[in-house]
Nucleic acid binder design. Structure first.
Lengths: 148, 148
DNA sequence: CTTGCAGATTAGACTCATTCTAACTGTGTT
DNA sequence: AACACAGTTAGAATGAGTCTAATCTGCAAG
């Protein structure tokens, strides 16, 4: 089920990589393709297995490297929940995460600017935040399909 | 610098433990004392070393056990930041965490009810959240003393 | 063309927080 | 005293992630 990158996605990848002085490689393309194909917040291991279907020689270390590079140049976000394995998310719009207790699935929750603003406003003066992570943990009713 | 539990804190501990069918033990008292003594979000290892000053035979496994028990009966909260070691926090009021990039220190940030409410409101119908974690990551100006 | 080289990839060793296991302890019960 | 049982303990095991040292790749200089 892994389709190739669209021209647009390819450009996006190339631009971000080159802008931070990195190269486009087949491995990076493969990993990026996997991330865009199924936007379900995969773990490194999941990315690894999916990507190997397309590029059998790919190594786990490379998947770690690629993902780190992508995070570094702002192509994807890391998602951590408690001490579980890190997951990766190519959704760059500001959003929160909802982790379903029952299934373990992670859903993106849109974060309206005014809520983001009210959150920033609780910081006392002198605190300057670059990153805000918001995660919910609970139950999502069966039938909810909201994982992009 | 570790002072004994006040009578009030002792009762608080006992009540919470007994309510969930657990016993008060010297080890649990020691660990709880350490948590209340310095409210700086210690890691398990830090709790371990501090507690051993008071109870030299205490084992790391027991510290893990005690902290897990406390979390289970709602006495303390776990605080996770990326994949760093879990930290523990005896502040039960709703609050967010701010992690200082420079020092690694974690500061509690008060969370006003209306902000909490606006956060809850972004969940689509069908999503029912029990826990919300909010963490900021950035720089706190030197001079800010806000770690309780 | 071939040489050099810098960055990327690779397999496998390593780290380290956390969890597990199995033996032991202490206390309360019959 | 013998038992049961929760709690504690040391040390082994786990597993995500990182590090290392050896290739590999693609490109620029000669």
């Amino acid at each position: 089920m892994i389709r190739n990158l669209t021209e647009q996605d390819k450009e996006h990848l190339q631009e971000a990589l080159v802008k931070s002085g990195q190269k486009v490689t087949p491995q990076r393309e493969a990993v990026f393709t996997v991330l865009l194909a199924e936007r379900d917040h995969p773990t490194v291991d999941e990315v690894f297995h999916r990507a190997r279907e397309v590029m059998p020689g790919l190594s786990l270390a490379t998947v770690y490297n690629c993902l780190e590079t992508f995070v570094g140049c702002g192509l994807v976000r890391q998602v951590n929940h408690e001490r579980e394995s890190t997951r990766y998310c190519p959704n760059l719009a500001p959003h929160a995460h909802f982790r379903d207790k029952a299934t373990g699935r992670v859903h993106d929750i849109e974060l309206p600017p005014e809520v983001l603003k009210s959150l920033r406003s609780i910081l006392p003066p002198g605190f300057d935040s670059e990153v805000i992570e918001i995660s919910f943990h609970g139950r999502a009713q069966a039938g909810e399909q909201h994982s992009n």
